[in-house]
Design a binder for these strands. Structure first.
Lengths: 152, 152
DNA sequence: TTTGTTGCAAAACGTTTGCAGCCTC
DNA sequence: GAGGCTGCAAACGTTTTGCAACAAA
């Protein structure tokens, strides 16, 4: 069923999370949340920090602090595609998807597959309660493939 | 106990890889290869560097350089389980497996599942030629679950 | 009023780089 | 002998930390 992923819903989830953990509801935290959920695609801490300066000024330390809270509340996920910069992505209202990573140029594309999702989600463990997953498919994109062929 | 032939086989693969790429066959590279393939489990660059000092002294720079070559030759894989330290793992003679990561304590366990593997490996793309994959299942391990329950 | 959170800057951390000398080819 | 590779140390870029001031509860 289609979920309602309005900003309001996300804010409510975050508010409840903060209340549960006895964290404070600061304007900085909501400004960051709002920014993330009104923009598409992957982002990293510095990109977010720079973009934020135009709307609501926050420090880089607060960006990192808030990202940690958003991770804990499962509203975003963190990826590290082999570089040292962590990439983040919002999860709420984002259909579950996987990532294809080109090992030559580093480009990342998304894809989804019902069979894969079903196989992973049906897996149960005795000593582990899984909440979510990340699947990275590594390989070579068509562009890099063409370049490799040209060289030979 | 792992098979004895694997070290020899791995060396041959690496030698061929170095020849193809016109890289030099230095003792440092083989010492690192040997160390990795005669030890079990995950490791990171510094751990490997420290362990190497007792057998064949190499610099940290050479460790990183060689890890890059081993990644390119697909003899090892790199993981970044949400921390900033990259973890490495040998792949040759290592049955394909996935990772469960506890989001509380960070502990990583391995598991395999035929259905999941089949679903992932059967996936084909027009503009992407996949070589391998990493599946990270995030959740809470039984130990951390017990502690969380105790708190409430 | 209490104490969690902020901004700032400095520190920490893993990783990469520049360079002189060495050694594989 | 040429030039790729090594060790070393310094540099880099991202993330974390310490601290004083601030503001949410």
């Amino acid at each position: 069923m289609k979920e309602d992923y309005s900003l309001d819903t996300v804010k409510k989830i975050f508010t409840q999370f903060l209340a549960e953990r006895k964290h404070r509801k600061t304007p900085e935290r909501y400004a960051i949340l709002e920014h993330i959920f009104s923009h598409e695609g992957h982002f990293n801490a510095e990109l977010l920090y720079n973009a934020m300066q135009k709307e609501y000024r926050v420090s880089l330390a607060t960006v990192y602090n808030t990202l940690e809270l958003l991770l804990d509340s499962r509203l975003i996920v963190k990826h590290q595609f082999g570089e040292q910069v962590a990439q983040y992505e919002k999860t709420f209202g984002n259909t579950m998807h996987n990532h294809m990573v080109c090992t030559k140029c580093g480009k990342v594309k998304e894809f989804s597959d019902k069979k894969i999702r079903a196989a992973i989600q049906s897996k149960r463990f005795v000593h582990f309660e899984s909440t979510h997953y990340s699947l990275y498919l590594y390989g070579v994109c068509s562009k890099c493939k063409a370049e490799l062929n040209k060289k030979q």
